[in-house]
Amino acid sequence: MTDHRDLDQVAFRKSSYSGTENCVEVAIAAGADIVLRDSKSRSTTLIFTPDEWTAFLSGVKAGEFDIPD
């Protein structure tokens, strides 16, 4: 798994769904790990293995994280 210290050379890109102030950035790190960060707090990152990322996306698509009205 990618270590937070290994992220200096990772190329982050901003989500196309982010606004001008609330931006989420994503990158693919060594070993195909997926790295997320808030563009305003770049020192804090979340690192997912490919399997964890796939499970997360499946949950999003299934509505597991939807906020009830």
Rank of each mutant, 00 (worst) to 15 (best):
L7M: 10
S16I: 13
Q9V: 09
A11R: 05
R5P: 00
G19Y: 12
I47W: 00
L7T: 04
D3M: 09
L57G: 02
F12V: 01
D66Q: 15
Y17V: 12
Q9F: 02
V35M: 02
H4F: 07
N22Q: 12
D51G: 04
I67T: 15
K40N: 12
D51N: 08
D3T: 10
D69E: 15
R42I: 10
I47E: 01
S16V: 11
T20C: 09
A11K: 08
S15T: 03
C23T: 12
E21Y: 14
F56G: 06
F56K: 02
G59S: 10
M1E: 12
F65I: 08
L46P: 02
F12L: 02
T54R: 15
R5G: 03
S18L: 08
E25C: 06
L57P: 00
E25S: 05
N22V: 03
L36W: 04
F48Y: 13
A11I: 06
D3I: 02
T49Y: 01
A55N: 13
A11D: 09
V35K: 02
E21L: 14
P50K: 06
A27N: 07
K40L: 13
K61C: 05
I67P: 08
T49H: 02
G31T: 03
N22D: 11
T44C: 01
V10Q: 01
A32S: 15
A29K: 10
D3E: 15
V10G: 01
K14I: 13
M1R: 12
T45N: 11
T54L: 09
K14N: 07
D33Q: 10
I28W: 02
A55Y: 03
N22A: 13
C23D: 01
D8Q: 12
P68M: 08
V10T: 12
S16H: 08
A29G: 10
R5T: 08
A32E: 15
D69P: 15
L57N: 13
G59M: 06
R37V: 05
F65Y: 15
L46F: 06
K40F: 00
S15M: 03
L7S: 04
I47N: 04
F12S: 05
G59T: 06
K40D: 09
S18P: 06
H4W: 00
S43V: 07
E25A: 09
A11Y: 01
F48R: 02
K61M: 13
D33R: 03
D69F: 14
A11F: 02
H4A: 11
A62F: 04
T2S: 13
V26S: 05
G59K: 07
H4V: 11
V35C: 03
E25P: 06
S41H: 14
L57R: 14
D51Y: 00
V24S: 08
K14H: 04
A27G: 14
T49L: 03
V35G: 03
T2N: 03
S43C: 05
L36M: 13
R42N: 00
N22K: 11
K14Q: 11
S39N: 11
D6K: 05
S43H: 07
Q9L: 10
G63N: 15
G63V: 14
I34A: 01
V10E: 07
R37M: 06
